[in-house]
Simulated scan of single mutants.
Amino acid sequence: MINVLLSQIQEKVLLTDQDQEAIATFFISKKLRKRQYLLQEGDVCKHLAFVAKGLLRSYNIDEKGNEHISIFGWEGWWVSDLNSFLSGVPAVFNIDAIEDSELMMISLVDYDRLTLAVPIMDRYFRILFQNSLVTKERRLMSAISHTAEEKYLNLAESNPHVIKRIPQNLIASYLGFTPETLSRIKKNLALKR
């Protein structure tokens, strides 16, 4: 699993052999079974997790019991309740596995130690956080300016390999509408083709 992580890091920054050896010492591996929690709302998020294999979701549940998915995390993605991880406050998100998954995880103490021991990792994480911010800004703009059909098409076009792995009710939750609305959209799209 560490090789998957190192390969993903190498896509963003150049690592020496010494950097790679050092990085490996800061991470622990964890396997999750389908439907197993990595984090539950109200707990403090103790780790930043890299998805080496599998598929996870981060979500919260409102007072009416409706689930709202904020992100899906598949191979090469990082998942966490970042505010909880960085500040130690209770998490507002649940994170669980949609598929059996394998993760590489780092604690906040080790995260800080890693960025001091391997300075290029500070740049790597800055790039990740910048990309995450851009993604969230685009998702917010989509939520307020696109139709339901446009939201679905954007997701399907940007992630065709992953969308096939995600149950339709979870896709609907992520896009902010009901499974019935998603079925209607898919039916209308099929009729247009």
Rank of each mutant, 00 (worst) to 15 (best):
D96Q: 03
E102A: 12
L108S: 00
A117R: 14
M104K: 13
D110E: 15
D110F: 02
L116T: 14
D122C: 11
Q130E: 13
D110S: 07
Q130N: 05
G88Q: 03
A97P: 01
D112L: 14
R113L: 14
N94I: 04
M104D: 12
L133N: 13
D122F: 05
L133V: 10
S101G: 06
D112F: 08
L128C: 12
V109C: 05
F125L: 11
L116V: 13
A91L: 04
M104H: 09
M105Y: 07
V92T: 12
P119I: 09
Y124T: 03
D96L: 02
L108H: 01
I106L: 12
Y124N: 02
Q130C: 04
V109R: 14
V118L: 05
V92N: 11
D112R: 14
I127H: 09
I106F: 04
F93A: 03
V109A: 14
S132D: 07
M104A: 15
D112I: 12
D100Y: 04
F129D: 02
L114H: 04
Y111G: 10
D96S: 07
L116P: 01
A117W: 02
Q130G: 00
M121C: 10
M105L: 15
R113W: 05
N131D: 12
Y124L: 06
A117C: 12
I95L: 03
P90M: 08
R113V: 05
I98W: 05
N94H: 13
P119W: 12
V92R: 11
S132C: 08
S132A: 15
D110T: 08
M104V: 10
F125A: 08
F129S: 11
L103A: 10
L128P: 10
D100K: 03
A97T: 00
F129W: 09
I106A: 10
S132V: 02
L114M: 12
I127D: 05
D112E: 14
D100S: 11
E99I: 06
D100G: 01
S101R: 09
P90H: 07
L114G: 00
R123M: 06
M121I: 07
